[in-house]
């Protein structure tokens, strides 16, 4: 059965607190203060993806030449027309015969890459593949999108043998729902502004359909799952408001909280669910069942995984998400604006 043999993530050093952003924009302080990750001027999705990939390779303990496919998901590549995953491939020393693909479109870009890679390996066309997702997001100053748009990357290595987690199945749901978008050349994401409508019809419905459909396919119920690593909506003040979808499926905060990084790193787009997966794997036990649920633009992918005993054996090689919190440094709003290009730098 195809599964994961290695996991790695990367989150930049810098953080900005929500209270700092709100103060700078003349808003009252938040009820719950959270942070988001901010990349340095010399970081982008390529550098972050490269670091996450190196970390996953270390966890898997394999030689990079064995990677036959490198599939990358991002919505914030510095190029519209140039393959950037080749830079990641060159950095790790992948073979020239490896196949590379890039996926985009929404925060689902990471799970899109995962679905394609797991099919590649299931079919026998490749024995080992890399899935890497990275995003560096930006919202207009003073908006909810700004409050939560973070940055990060995460990578998974897939193969059929010696897996730390088996992929049991996947299911998707699709709809034409415009809740968030970013035009080519626009540095900012934009949204409809109607959060409640977006939450009920854009977010809840596709997730309930994707996850419900998956459990039905596999003959499972919510009782079979210990963890649900799900793309969160940045509703900020009251996280419980964003879990209507989960409650409908029989899940609650104990399933969701272990995979949440919205409050520590922000919305990290395509990499969000994989960063959460790294965080969950650190505390999960063999045979624990977990679900990855991504969401982007009215569509959702749900993937069911089960941890194997091999996960415990490789635990020491897994890089902990906690380490990214140990070395963090806080920014003020002006420093943040310079790093995100909102205001000019001395260069």
């Amino acid at each position: 059965m195809v599964g994961i043999i290695g996991v790695g993530a990367y989150v930049p050093t810098y953080r900005i607190k929500l209270s700092e952003i709100l103060k700078a924009n003349n808003f009252p302080p938040p009820l719950i203060d959270v942070e988001k990750a901010v990349p340095n001027l010399d970081e982008d999705v390529v550098t972050m993806a490269a670091e996450a990939t190196a970390s996953a390779i270390k966890h898997a303990g394999i030689s990079p030449e064995k990677i036959e496919a490198l599939y990358m998901g991002t919505t914030s590549s510095p190029y519209t027309d140039r393959t950037v995953v080749t830079t990641v491939a060159a950095h790790i020393g992948a073979s020239n015969s490896a196949n590379v693909m890039e996926f985009g479109g929404s925060a689902r870009a990471g799970t899109s890459a995962l679905l394609a890679c797991m099919d590649l390996i299931s079919s026998g066309r490749a024995k080992c593949g890399l899935v890497v997702a990275a995003d560096s997001l930006l919202g207009p100053p003073g908006t909810l999108l700004e409050f939560y748009s973070g940055a990060g990357a995460a990578a998974l290595l897939l193969a059929k043998e010696n897996t730390i987690a088996e992929i049991e199945g996947a299911n998707s749901s699709t709809s034409e729902f415009a809740d968030k978008w970013r035009r080519c050349g626009d540095p900012y994401m934009r949204d409809s502004g109607d959060d409640r409508f977006a939450r009920e019809y854009g977010y809840t419905k596709p997730i309930v359909d994707a996850v419900g459909g998956l459990m039905k396919k596999l003959g499972k119920t919510s009782k079979d799952y210990k963890f649900v690593i799900q793309q969160m909506l940045p509703i900020g003040l009251d996280p419980s408001k964003g879990i209507d979808a989960s409650k409908k499926l029989g899940f609650d905060m104990p399933h969701l909280m272990p995979g949440v990084t919205l409050n520590t790193f922000g919305e990290t787009g395509a990499s969000y669910v994989f960063i959460g997966l790294n965080q969950v794997i650190e505390q999960a036990k063999p045979n624990d069942r977990m679900m990855i649920v991504s969401y982007g633009g009215g569509c959702s992918d749900a993937i069911s995984l089960r941890l194997t005993p091999v996960a415990d054996a490789r635990k020491t090689a897994l890089h902990s998400i906690k380490d990214f919190q140990k070395s963090k440094e806080l920014l003020n709003y002006v420093q943040y604006c310079k790093l995100k290009g909102i205001i000019g730098t001395s260069a």
Binding site: N40, D42, E43, D44, V46, T47, A50, E51, P78, Y79
Partner: peptide, 12 residues
Amino acid sequence: VFRRFGEADGLL
């Protein structure tokens, strides 16, 4: 660490 610095004619 692996970082991005400089560009030539738009090529990073």
